[in-house]
Design a protein around this nucleic acid. Structure first.
Lengths: 201, 201
DNA sequence: CCTACCGATCGGTAGG
DNA sequence: CCTACCGATCGGTAGG
């Protein structure tokens, strides 16, 4: 038996590499316009070889979308866990948590925000109901803030919509190598958005 | 010479029909995932027949994207034309103008906002520079409002970004048959967004 | 506006 | 992980 070259142990599993590279491509070109051959080339292998690690193109999209959904829920739960924290402060921490998830992996976030519609049923419907639940949590937080007088807004639904829209625009312009750190961005966004909601300024 | 059945005169030109139907499909499925055969079927004709009215699939996308860009510029110019109008009021009218364009054709707006990346060069770069110019106009307006003391914001760039992001989220949830009229939506959005920017409330 | 078709490319599989 | 390939579908054209 002859000794063979020990293959370089991949730092991340091949599957994780595929997910990461696919996510970047999905973000740049969109899910439908990204071909499995492009993805394979980017990874230095042949198209057919991908299928020893994944079952389908959509499987990747599914993992990215639902993985991020989980991240958003986790961070929101942490931000709002402490019962003694004032509502406005909970909202601030929820905003910062949301921004943290967005900046941690902005490619995956962009896919989460824009490519979910290429999920086939029933995943698509399931995804949308998760997203609705998440929006609902923010709306409830804002409504409670208004009820206890810490926040004010002419229309709760509009306030929630504009808040999340502002945050979710981030992956369109965020660059990890930009001047501001994720924490600074989170802080400024929170200032900007709470500025319009807080009763006492 | 025998008289023949007079063909029904189309209310809109066939080309305009193609654009409208394609826009709805591009919005629902995305540009890349929409096939010319789907589009033809929707219009009740064969795929090949489309090409006596249009040159290519991308030509449609090009018309939609640049047509809407023109609409946004036109409405912004009208909103900010009068030199004697206070800056904050100009901003309010610019917001309402932007919302008016978005609600007038929300399918085209959604395509404008999300499908432009499927334009090939040089159209893509040209489009992005138009979009930058438009954003720049809003930023300049906000900056001037802060300079003269009518507006306040911790960060002009962030204020502009969150403002436009909030407005541009509208095509994602706007339904022409919803409870609120476009004017009411424009008004509430303006209230919500100016509420965080106005110096005197 | 249709019929008939082109070459290219797609996601995915069989067998090794 | 590769080679070789599958059937399906793509945008678009020629000729009428």
């Amino acid at each position: 038996m002859l000794p063979t070259m020990t293959p370089t142990v991949p730092l991340r599993s091949r599957k994780a590499q595929i997910d990461r590279t696919a996510t970047a491509l999905f973000r740049a070109r969109g899910f439908a316009a990204t071909s499995m051959r492009e993805l394979a080339t980017e990874l230095g292998l042949e198209a057919g070889s991908l299928y020893s690690h994944i079952k389908s193109k959509e499987e990747i999209l599914h993992r990215v979308c639902f993985g991020l959904a989980e991240d958003f829920f986790t961070d929101f739960a942490v931000a709002t866990a402490d019962a003694s924290t004032p509502v406005a402060e909970k909202l601030r921490q929820a905003i910062e948590g949301h921004v943290r998830v967005l900046t941690r992996d902005s490619a995956a976030s962009a896919v989460f925000l824009h490519e979910w519609r290429h999920l086939s049923e029933p995943a698509r419907t399931e995804f949308l109901s998760l997203r609705d639940r998440y929006e609902g949590s923010f709306r409830a937080l804002i409504a409670r803030g208004i009820a206890v007088g810490e926040l004010h807004a002419p229309d709760t639904a509009f306030a929630t919509l504009t808040l999340l829209a502002s945050l979710n625009w981030l992956p369109s312009w965020y660059r990890p190598d930009g001047k501001l750190t994720p924490d600074e961005i989170a802080h400024r966004l929170a200032e900007q958005l709470l500025g319009g909601l807080l009763t006492n300024k």
